[in-house]
Design a binder for these strands. Structure first.
Lengths: 147, 147
DNA sequence: TTGACCTGGTTGCATTCGCAACTATAAAGG
DNA sequence: CCTTTATAGTTGCGAATGCAACCAGGTCAA
């Protein structure tokens, strides 16, 4: 492998590439918690986290908030339901929709993982420095909003 | 859905979550180029980009540089080979390893996608502002390095 | 009320992924 | 040499994904 310059664009400066690598790196350690300790997939954890954070809502709402495909959400909801972490209740204003909400057990799991998440996030922010972490948050939000 | 505060950690501030969403958002538009126009998967594009940027190397090197699982790289290499974008040549110093290098066609595809990538990246940086983009790059590198 | 269209959610199917097991070669130590 | 251990790369298999098709319930207008 030669590391001399080649013509063309520079991969190391390509933001989507850097973002993906950083996201992967940041998610890797944390994934072990929800996966190994609770048997959850990333999507399942996300659905759980959204319900835990924002309270009861429909699958459609979760899609809108988290920008996750509805079929992914659908299957994650089914899995969480099977696992007893979430309850589904028919909406009384829309016969198609279901109101999703965490069960007590779901709340418990969310609280436990949430504590780990807080620690994990804190450690990461400390490594980056408070200022950089704050700036990062702002820029990431801008990127997300621009989709 | 209620958006009142709930106890526990705040999902909106969780860096791995923000990073994943931002990475997804940033990759989405660009993905259409290598996927729809060239039939490449993300991993295939990454392998191609690394070979295009850094020149001939082994699959193992690509794994080390890009932090991608070796089985993913293996399959991407096989696909690129089938597509005639890449050549494999046995290493003369290690009977297990193969030296990978882009064919002329592979170079061409890399150059074409590279131009689009450059534009895409430039547009993204302009939206964020030059200063913010530079800081972002630095912080992302720090996160990636800390894995 | 009826018909045309829209929307929340699920399912089928082909593709991709992750992990473990495997093959073949290399390296190190006796 | 021969045995042991490590490494480059591939493959099998179950799980997760993406996309299109689908079902059932709304919406809106004539």
């Amino acid at each position: 492998m030669t590391d001399q310059d080649r013509p063309g664009f520079d991969l190391d400066e390509f933001l989507p590439y850097l973002l993906n690598q950083a996201a992967e790196a940041a998610s890797l350690g944390f994934q072990e918690i929800y996966r190994d300790r609770y048997g959850l997939t990333r999507t399942q954890w996300r659905v759980l986290a959204n319900l835990g954070r924002f309270g009861a809502m429909t699958a459609r709402d979760i899609c809108a908030i988290s920008h996750v495909e509805k079929t992914k959400v659908s299957r994650a909801v089914a899995a969480l339901d099977r696992g007893g972490l979430l309850r589904r209740r028919p909406s009384d204003t829309d016969g198609r929709a279901e109101i999703l909400d965490l069960t007590d057990r779901g709340q418990g799991v969310f609280a436990e993982i949430g504590l780990c998440a807080r620690d994990y996030d804190l450690a990461l922010r400390q490594r980056l420095g408070a200022g950089a972490a704050g700036d990062l948050t702002r820029v990431l939000r801008a990127i997300i909003a621009a989709r």
